[in-house]
Computed example of a mutant assay.
Amino acid sequence: MDATKLRRAIARTPLAPVAAFPKRLARVARHDAKVLRVSARWLVTSREHHNYTYELTKLSRNHLAWFVSVVCDRPVTQVREWLGEIESDQVLRQHIERTTAGAARRGLADRQVRYARRIGWYAIVRATRPTHIVETGVDKGLGTCVLAAALLRNAQEGHPGRVTSLDINPEAGYLARSEPWSDVVDLVIGDSIASIGALDRPVDLFLHDSDHSRAHEKREFDAIEPKLAPGAILLTDNVTSTNVLAEHAERTGRRFLAYRESPANHWYPGDGIGVAW
């Protein structure tokens, strides 16, 4: 009996789990060894303790381009141009590197600029040309800078806009406090729900990226609903953890899609973008 016939014969016997165990063990060991190598390298080369930054895999980046294309009804070739636009913005990249190096919190931040899914935020802003964006959760201000960069490009093409950035931490947003990005950013320090209630102009694009508890995320979407302009888009950075935005979309008669990123050479499994429109 040849080897193939022998394996097939064993697979039909009670010995099948025992025979398959070495191969299964080898696959698990290879996977775990890779994770351990990547994790060990990150521990000695990175300073980040939360809001991890990384590049996307090539496949994940391609999927992100199609995700934005479908949501915004724009050709995927155009979306790819916008993704390349933010990635090749050397002025912004150098600003982030320089500001990070001199920041009080530099001991917990990497100087290398890695946008991950935020390039998708950029493309959505370029595609939809919002007049007023509201984001909750600013941290260092990396995402705020990305949104501001898209607004500045839109303004050059005759479509100006601003972003209202909400955070409860008075130290938040230090990357977005320099011109020209600060020219289109209104940084508001305080509770996000109270700040949303105080908004005095319609919101075209809303991004939840603050307290990621299910209860708080729901409160933010409920609070922003009466502030939205017709045709507004809702985004969540919490889509890999909750179904809050999907449920909100169903209640309010919107469509919903989710994208999950795949980080390149990082132990963290990644976050994603949820969108309702």
Rank of each mutant, 00 (worst) to 15 (best):
A33M: 14
A29I: 08
E220T: 15
P14T: 10
R126G: 04
V275D: 10
L64T: 06
L235W: 04
F206R: 01
L166Y: 07
S165R: 13
T13V: 08
T144S: 10
E171P: 05
R255M: 15
V76E: 15
A11E: 07
W82P: 00
I193V: 11
P170A: 12
A172N: 12
G272C: 03
R251G: 03
V76N: 12
A149R: 07
G272D: 01
V163C: 05
E261H: 03
D237T: 06
E157R: 15
I124E: 09
A258V: 10
L43K: 05
P269G: 04
K5D: 12
V68N: 05
T131G: 15
A20C: 09
D204N: 15
G274H: 04
I168C: 10
L92V: 06
S213G: 09
R7N: 05
L199F: 06
Y115I: 02
N243W: 10
R214A: 02
V44H: 13
L205A: 09
H49W: 04
R27Q: 15
E157I: 01
T57R: 10
R214D: 00
P17F: 00
W82M: 05
A104S: 15
Y52K: 01
G137P: 09
I168S: 11
A20Q: 08
S88T: 13
L92R: 11
I96P: 03
R7H: 08
E48S: 15
T100W: 00
D167Q: 08
D200K: 02
L199C: 05
A116I: 01
L152D: 13
S39P: 03
L15Y: 08
K140G: 06
S165N: 09
R24H: 14
E55L: 10
T136W: 08
D209A: 07
R219Y: 02
T136C: 11
V38Q: 07
N51L: 13
S213D: 02
D209N: 09
E97F: 04
Y54N: 02
R37G: 13
T240K: 07
I189W: 06
R153W: 12
R24G: 04
E157Q: 15
R98L: 01
A264W: 11
I224Y: 01
V38H: 11
N265W: 07
D89E: 01
T252S: 14
R74P: 02
L142C: 05
K140S: 14
G161T: 08
L142N: 02
W42P: 03
P180R: 06
S262T: 10
G137M: 14
T53D: 00
L175T: 01
T236D: 07
H49K: 12
T236G: 03
A172T: 12
A104T: 13
F67D: 02
L245Q: 01
I224M: 04
D186R: 12
I124R: 07
P180L: 06
R177Y: 03
L108K: 10
